[in-house]
Computed example of a mutant assay.
Amino acid sequence: MDLNPPFERVLELVKQVLSLPDELRGHAERVVRFYTGIVGLLNAQNVLGCALGLHPDESGGFMSSVITVSAFPAMGGNAKLVVASLAGSAADRPDEGMRPLNLPCGAGFLAEKIRRAPAPGAPPEGSDTAPEGTVWQGTVAVTGPGARDIVVLQLVTSAVDLADSYRDVLLGVAHTLSFTDPLLTEAADNSNRQGSGAAAAIESDFG
């Protein structure tokens, strides 16, 4: 999901909605309002990236999931101490769905729970209350060496019965997390390649 869509793209989307026939315009407007509301909510919660998943189920339909990556400044400025403290307390509370993690990028913890959440769709006729559903929510928090922010990965799905599988997905993503800028790594690799061979030898000989 693009959390910072260019103004031109938003304007073009509005034009497309306004050009739709009357019988379709109302539905499209609700979808656009829902999208802009979600983007505003995610931006307000320091979300850096968001991906939506649709997965086929056994009945021929689809299950949905949402994974987000957020960053929050640590209280006191020492993110490593905050995460270490939470990871330590997680070891004492496995019954609450918390456990410490030792990830390639550093120490962290996993927290998971099943909770009620707003569900897609219009309220039942005669009711102003939004529909609710049950979701599984998994959260991984971690920080890297020298980092001031705590990075939070969160996966939410309505497929509560498949929580074990979604937990594996979340942990798999967490194990790929790195605090190394891939562009800097690529630049260093290119520099090393350019610094070898005949050209490098001539440059070395002549300073």
Rank of each mutant, 00 (worst) to 15 (best):
M1E: 10
L3W: 03
F7A: 15
V10D: 11
V10I: 15
L11D: 15
L13K: 08
L13Y: 01
V14H: 09
V14D: 12
K15F: 04
L18C: 10
S19N: 15
S19L: 13
P21S: 13
L24P: 00
E29N: 06
E29G: 09
R30F: 06
V32M: 15
F34P: 03
Y35H: 12
I38W: 05
V39E: 09
L41F: 13
L42F: 07
N43I: 05
Q45M: 10
L48K: 11
G49C: 02
L52M: 13
L54H: 04
H55K: 06
P56Q: 02
E58A: 14
E58C: 00
E58Q: 09
S59K: 11
G60T: 10
M63Q: 14
I67A: 09
T68L: 15
S70P: 03
A71L: 05
A71F: 02
A71N: 10
A71G: 15
N78C: 09
V82A: 12
S85H: 08
A91M: 07
D92A: 14
R93W: 01
P94I: 09
E96V: 02
R99A: 13
P100N: 01
N102T: 12
L103K: 02
C105G: 10
G106P: 08
A107E: 14
G108K: 01
A111Y: 00
A111H: 12
E112M: 08
K113Q: 13
K113G: 14
R116C: 05
R116K: 09
A117G: 04
P118K: 01
A119K: 07
A119C: 08
P120D: 06
G121C: 06
A122W: 00
E125Q: 07
G126C: 12
G126Y: 03
A130Y: 00
G138L: 05
T143L: 07
T143K: 04
G144T: 09
G144Y: 01
G146P: 10
R148K: 06
I150L: 08
I150N: 09
Q154R: 10
T157H: 04
S158F: 00
D161E: 11
L162F: 08
L162T: 04
S165T: 10
D168H: 01
D168P: 00
G172A: 03
V173K: 00
A174M: 05
A174E: 07
T176N: 03
L177W: 04
F179D: 07
L183T: 15
D189I: 04
S191A: 14
N192L: 11
R193E: 10
Q194R: 10
G197R: 02
A199P: 00
S204K: 14
F206H: 08
F206W: 05
